[in-house]
């Protein structure tokens, strides 16, 4: 299993904990992740202002991977939907691809429609498989009670994702987390958006959306949240303190990446999984796993 490792913008700058833990889990499971130096933004944040330019950015990244004869592994859900959608639109040799290739010609690259894009979680379930993942677990996480957050672009638009998971009743993240022995906590509003894309427009609206989910989870007995997108994590982890002070409330809810949960079960230590980088402290929650 070998993939071009597409990090996007947010992960290398703001979510080194996600990148660290994903690299560890991939190495353990024998998924080879190849760093491609020329990757640029996927284009997703520019859809709202210049859809055509956003598509060209996406196609440029696909063309880079194609030149290396590799499919793409993505960690960020927005990058996953953007690159998957562009790959979907450009899979046929039609006028749309011809037009994009005219733009790419200035860079000396051409896209021929041959790249598949997969979110890391899709690779885990579809290519590695639940049984093989479990073989590498050395810690039992049954004291964790986890509320999963799927976010939007990990699942939608559903037509580009080939029935990987169900939009109205998603299971994939919980299936993977449950392998570790952790208890899955269902909650009202599980499918709600994090509000992230509105953050650069009107911050208080974005934070109000994120707050709804934190409120819903705090009504359950969950002691951590688990997610698969760095922008969702910005909303719930980086901005949790800000929401607490804005609304005069307290959540103190650790927000873990799926790869941190799996890596924990695989026996990696705190720093190897970047758990010390998480904004809401995880030390107390995970103390039992790291005692000498």
């Amino acid at each position: 299993m070998k993939y071009a490792f597409y990090l996007g913008c947010t992960i290398p700058a703001r979510s080194r904990n996600y990148e660290l833990s994903a690299r560890k889990v991939a190495e353990k499971l024998d998924i080879e992740l190849v760093d491609v130096e020329g990757f640029v933004c996927c284009g997703f944040p520019m859809n709202a202002s210049d859809l055509k330019a956003a598509g060209v950015m996406g196609a440029y990244n696909l063309a880079l991977a194609e030149r290396k004869n590799l499919d793409i592994c993505v960690l960020c859900s927005s990058c996953a939907s953007q690159l998957t959608e562009v790959a979907h639109d450009l899979s046929d040799d039609g006028p749309e691809r011809e037009e994009v290739n005219k733009e790419l010609a200035r860079t000396g690259l051409k896209y021929s429609g041959g790249v598949r894009v997969k979110h890391f979680a899709h690779i885990l379930l579809e290519e590695v498989g639940e049984e093989k993942i479990k073989e590498y677990f050395v810690r039992d996480l049954s004291d964790l009670r986890i509320a999963a957050h799927y976010g939007c672009h990990y699942l939608k638009p559903s037509e580009i994702y080939d029935d990987f998971d169900h939009v109205e009743d998603p299971k994939s993240i919980e299936t993977l987390v449950a392998l570790t022995g952790a208890k899955i906590v269902d909650y009202h509003g599980k499918k709600r958006c994090c509000g992230g894309p509105v953050l650069p427009v009107v911050e208080d609206v974005a934070l109000a959306v994120a707050k709804e989910k934190l409120d819903d989870i705090s009504k359950t007995d969950a002691n951590a949240m688990c997610l698969v997108c760095p922008f969702c994590s910005v909303m719930y982890d980086d901005n949790q303190k800000g929401i607490e002070s804005e609304y005069d409330t307290t959540y103190n809810l650790p927000v873990l990446y799926l790869t941190q949960v799996l890596g924990l079960a695989m026996g990696f230590d705190r720093k190897e999984l970047g758990l010390n980088i998480n904004v809401v402290k995880t030390k107390k929650l995970l103390a039992q796993y790291f005692e000498q």
């Binding site: 672009h153 939608k156 109205e168 509105v198």
Partner: peptide, 11 residues
């Protein structure tokens, strides 16, 4: 500009 492009409506 308040649309978060979450696709819930479209789905």
């Amino acid at each position: 500009w308040l649309c978060s492009s979450c696709y819930t409506c479209q789905e």
